[in-house]
Amino acid sequence: MLQIRKLPLIVFALLIVVFPWIARGVPAIANYPDLMVFAGIYCLITIGLSLLMGYAGQISLGQAAFFGIGAYVSAILTAKYGMNPWICMAIGMVAASIVAVLVGVPSLKLRGHYLAMATLAFGIIVFIIFNEEGEWTGGPDGLIGIPGLNLFGFQFNSVEKYYYLVWFFVFAVFLFTINIIQSRDGRALRAIHVSEAASSATGVNVSRYKIVVFVYSAILASLAGSLYAHYLNFINPSTFDLFFSIKLLIMIALGGMHDIWGAIIGAFLITFLSFEWLHFFEEFEIIVYGLILLVVTIFLPQGLAGIPHMIKNWLRR
């Protein structure tokens, strides 16, 4: 997992680029680019979360809050004050990173389930603020009138245009993150996951690393939130509730948390399952969803990204 090979990445990039053309030709999947926009937005969050969980070994059940901070900063500043969306996006990321430092410094001293509860509590508190401060956030009914994005007069006003915008961000973030993983810092992170005491003894500043990764994941979530708000032109608090944080955790677990590809596979899978494929089961949808979770955790403990590895091991036997 240390080396990210170039070939799969190039194939994946090409697939993403040509996909809208394919979808245009096949009526059955005509709405898939729309789903892919959301999958891409979720990928931004899960890449950060994967780095935090799979590499630095820290759990967060509060990522929905950072997603929401990005979305609400963008939404409020553009819809109510008419500011430039790109500047708002940057402000959102700054705001998310400040909050992440304030929350992360005391929280990341906690371990295991205590950290899980602390981040969960933080997420719920932020959700309550979104819900209660109706004057700013529009309350539970949500905020309308968020403008779309444009760049030098070019409007991202169709599904396909937005699709390319979102996936441009995903690739930029993906490549940047791979660089981190393969650098000295990446090795330090994995060392923390294996043993905090040992890595600290060899001179790794454990708490600094943990906070930097936490802030990085918060910034990515905030970016995703801004992109979400400008795509839907609407946000409401229930999008950013604790169940979304749990959904992100499920994405990571299904995809495989020890592999950055896992973050992408998980985001894809959950997006398509919950937004499209499971509709077939109607009332039984949530039972099937739960069963899928159980089956994957039982038979694929390394997540779907672990399948090639499992096949390799199986062939070698």
Binding site: I59, G112, I287, L293, T297
Partner: peptide, 19 residues
Amino acid sequence: PSVLTLIIATIGASIVIRG
């Protein structure tokens, strides 16, 4: 079993029971 897989398993089970 890792902490994460066990958490996901119990979440999965809770979803099935709820359904």
